[in-house]
Amino acid sequence: MEMITALVYIAIFPGFFFLAVYGTALQWADRKICAVMQNRVGPPWYQTLADFIKLASKEVIIPDGADVKMFKALPYIAVAAVITAMLFIPITSSPIYSFQGDMIAVVYLLTIPTATFFLAGWSSTSPYASFGSMRVMTQLFGYEVPMLLSLVGPAILAGSWSIYDISAYFSTNPKMLFFQIIGFIVSLLSVQGKLERVPFDTPHAKNEIVGGQFTEYSGILLGLFNLSIDMEMVVCAALINAIFLGGSWQLGGWASIVLFLIKTFAIVFLFTAIKAMMARVRIDQMVKFCWKYLAPLAMIQIIVDICLKYTLLK
């Protein structure tokens, strides 16, 4: 019986099925909102689904000299890692699995898709793809530290490394959320880097290096990579929601799910606004920005949280 419920969790909710449907829906919302902001019409509601079906029905072409097994396995690993990360993030009042330190586990699980992007570019053996994968790796060193640092502040305040405990802490002390605004902004910007969106979409900047790390990918494999990015968007939004916006506010049941959907949608709206109002920066500028501004800001957030915890709240 336990086996069956676990399978349901992984395959349906909050696993693959939920993530895929909500991810593609958010991807559509992102594109549509961006289009409306740009005074365009934008894609119809079934566009992302149609894209996936089209890619799934296309032939998969594997370049000469590529490591065939790795080339084929990577998209599945990316999707699996994202689903696993989602299992630790609370949607309803309690997460499916939780343990002390699951926040660190989620951050590392979210690094796995990035690593697969790097390997995907590397194993394609085309110059554009290798440039893309080099940039993926360089970018990883840029955003990963500020992102992790921005998550440390709330963890210190809550006195726990578990995502559920942190969101529970904030739902009992909602005042504390106002002090997390710097960390919230830092995490929003660094997640743009993780999801490879404007202004940090250099790894697959189409004007520069065509498709970046995915240049040689086609068919269902490319579809799965795109799906994994969509799912990653949901997971990142859910993570920010749980850590900075107090998660489900202990509501439980359907209300918490609705709250989750509303809040993640709002976060994606912020992602879209950032995407719509900036130009793409160069990879060296991106790394410099992350270390010069984002990382110190995240440190300030940590200091604020330490001060709060050990002086004011004593």
């Binding site: 961006c34 902001m37 740009q38 005074n39 365009r40 404007v198 202004p199 979409d201 900047a205 004007n207 719509a276 109002m277 900036m278 130009a279 793409r280």
Partner: peptide, 16 residues
């Protein structure tokens, strides 16, 4: 130029 910089919103506005 805006498009080559990845600034799509400006690209759309100027062309409009």
């Amino acid at each position: 130029a805006a498009y080559e910089m990845g600034f799509e919103t400006m690209f759309m506005y100027t062309w409009r």
